[in-house]
């Protein structure tokens, strides 16, 4: 239990630093802004209390906001994402429910499950984020394009990072 908490706290800091020091400086073209830090919310354990889910999401968003100079924008997107997480987990739950002690990762539930689960959450997060950033309907379609392309890249990076974590676990 304590192990899980410590691991999640470390993951929080690593993801924030990776996002603001590395990903923020990588330019993949104007339409592509991956936000890998959302991985933190995606892989929180199933047993996380709902209120804790919202608060950690809010705190994560505010931390990212500090570095991106976007007061409240990332926080709003993260909180919304965290709000929908339990519902989406329920939607995709296996017939017998989730096994105790497992985590919503590729390792436990496989690629197709993870992509559909993480994909929906990521698109949701990016959708809110990009429309809050633009805050008008003038550039609706170009923003929508940005949402899709960025989501695909985020998902790609999230899946890749999952494989990195997985290998580490087998060694333990």
């Amino acid at each position: 239990m304590t192990n899980t908490i410590i691991r999640n706290i470390i993951r929080f800091f690593v993801l924030v630093l990776v996002q603001v020091l590395i990903i923020k400086n990588i330019e993949l073209g104007r339409f592509i802004n991956p936000f890998v830090y959302v991985l933190f919310i995606i892989v929180l354990p199933f047993e996380t209390p709902k209120w804790l889910l919202l608060f950690t999401a809010f705190f994560l968003g505010i931390t990212i906001d500090m570095f991106y100079d976007t007061a409240g924008m990332h926080a709003a997107a993260c909180v919304l994402m965290a709000y929908f997480r339990p519902g989406i987990l329920k939607l995709f739950s296996p017939r017998d429910g989730y096994e105790f002690g497992t985590q919503p990762t590729i390792q436990y539930l496989g690629i197709p499950w993870f992509i559909s689960y993480a994909g929906i959450l990521i698109v949701l997060h990016h959708f809110i984020l990009f429309y809050l950033e633009i805050f008008r309907l003038q550039e609706f379609f170009s923003t929508f394009f940005r949402v899709l392309i960025s989501s695909i890249f985020t998902l790609l990076l999230v899946v890749i990072s999952q494989y990195l974590f997985q290998r580490k676990k087998e060694q333990e």
Binding site: K50, W51, L54, F55, F58, G61, A71, G72, M73, A75, A76, V79, L80, A82, Y83, P86, L132, F135
Partner: peptide
């Protein structure tokens, strides 16, 4: 409480955002 907590936090975010603008 989950829904209301969500509304509260979201309102806080929007408040920050609007104030910031």
């Amino acid at each position: 409480y989950f829904f209301f907590l969500f509304l509260l936090l979201e309102a806080l975010c929007i408040y920050l955002l609007v104030q910031n603008n």
